[in-house]
Design a protein around this nucleic acid. Structure first.
Lengths: 156, 156
DNA sequence: AAATACAGTACTGACGTAGTCCTAATTGAA
DNA sequence: TTCAATTAGGACTACGTCAGTACTGTATTT
């Protein structure tokens, strides 16, 4: 499984929560209550997203966080990059990360794959994440029956 | 960074090595020498790839491994799935992995992204990995200067 | 002044990855 | 027939990252 961190997944959920009512500020406490993500973890994520410029903050009693931009202006790729660094499936997308990059025959092919992934995630914005979604990229996912198990991608 | 395992990266390198001369069998020892990947690690990977049906094996003195199919018939996605399981950036691609999947508003969007990634990696075959590559998907990667550091994606 | 909420940093435990090691089983060649 | 090379199949371990926690400080509102 090529996967995102749990925290990155949480981060997208948090920002999607903001995107549903972009005008309001929301406190970490409130976000934790709405998403089910533990408050300390929410706090930690918000700090990172703040530093990345995706959020603005307000201290004090009536304080909280809010989106720094309109939901339609924030691609999911920006969220992932804020929380995980460069968006790619191989480290060689960052020059200097691999000692073999100069003679590696695989590298140009990985770069192409990385581009495809990056493009897909750049086109998807927070505004689109707030909708039940049906109509952007390819075909819809098959909706199979399910059993319950560990938490991931919590609904806001 | 959304990334593959180091081992998966190695796996692709190993299979690409086979793809360059599909007719021959190659021993684990030989593969280690050619790729620079430690022999125990090579052995471990080959076992997994064998079980997945990507390789065939021959025991004994003149033994070794060979591709089970033509390089053009093996998509990179199959290699990744053999070594990492289902190919997706979120766990919710596997029904039952997430307790919130039924009410998660993000899920259909993730599914769409997963599809894009899966498609890109399905189109890329081992045959194409053996070529210096220039002409499939999008634009070529920028070739910037580099400094040396940890090993990844070793050239066969 | 007190309560609320953000800011920043340091720490800890758990888990998965990467890598190693050991003991069969099989085959080809001397 | 014996030996050497090679795969088969595990169990095991060290390490690093991730996820989560704790603590202290600063700002703002009432």
């Amino acid at each position: 499984m090529i996967r995102m961190n749990k925290l990155t997944d949480y981060g997208v959920v948090l920002l999607t929560t903001f995107a549903r009512e972009p005008a309001h500020g929301i406190s970490a406490r409130e976000l934790s209550a709405r998403t089910g993500i533990p408050q300390p973890t929410v706090v930690k994520l918000l700090k990172t997203l703040l530093k990345a410029g995706l959020l603005v903050s307000q201290r004090g009693t009536k304080g909280g966080y809010a989106l720094a931009k309109l939901p339609a202006e924030v691609p999911v790729s920006a969220v992932i990059e804020a929380l995980e660094g460069p968006l790619a499936i191989t480290e060689c997308s960052v020059p200097g990360m691999c000692e073999h990059e100069r003679r590696c025959v695989a590298r140009p092919n990985w770069a192409a794959v990385n581009d495809v992934i990056h493009e897909a995630l750049s086109k998807l914005t927070l505004a689109e994440m707030t909708r039940p979604a049906q109509a952007h990229p390819p075909r819809p996912a098959p909706l199979l029956p399910s059993i319950d198990s560990p938490p991931r991608s919590i609904a806001p």
